[in-house]
Amino acid sequence: MAVNLTELSLPQLEGLKGQLEQEIEFLTSSIGQLKIAQTKYVEAKESLSVLNKENAGKELLVPLTSSMYVPGALSDVEHVLVDVGTGYYVEKNVEETKEFFKRKIDFLTKQIEKIQPALQEKHAMKQAVLEVMNMKIQQLHSQQTSQAGTAKA
């Protein structure tokens, strides 16, 4: 975009500022959502550590609803069922599942890293627009005061 900001009028700058603010908001919320998804994967990965040989056969309480639990026993510490998307679930062993979560976390990190520069760029552009707007407003002010001065004199 090769537009000289100083050539734009104040309302145009105002519009541009609004547009940039919208874009910034969108990108920020995107990053926020990605981070939430990432946290979920990190938590899931960490909870895998409970599935080790030491805990095999131990008793546990299974939540049937959020307020009712039934006793159960941990019969399988090697396999878990993973939701891979669009209704598909895959049975994997713990190691494979850890790798699966690592892949997901890395993928999300990459996506966030892709958005971050764009966000910074938008921030910088907004800053530039604000500066030009301030400059214009000051120019307008000094013009008015000098006009008032000459009118008096």
Binding site: L81, G85, G87, Y88, Y89, V90, F100
Partner: peptide
């Protein structure tokens, strides 16, 4: 995008892994 991700995941599997499909409330 969603389906591409699923495809990538399925491509990583071998015959050792069992795949389930969620149909309504059953796998």
């Amino acid at each position: 995008t969603e389906n591409t991700i699923v495809k990538d995941e399925l491509d990583l599997l071998d015959s050792e892994n069992t795949v389930y499909k969620l149909i309504g409330p059953v796998l």
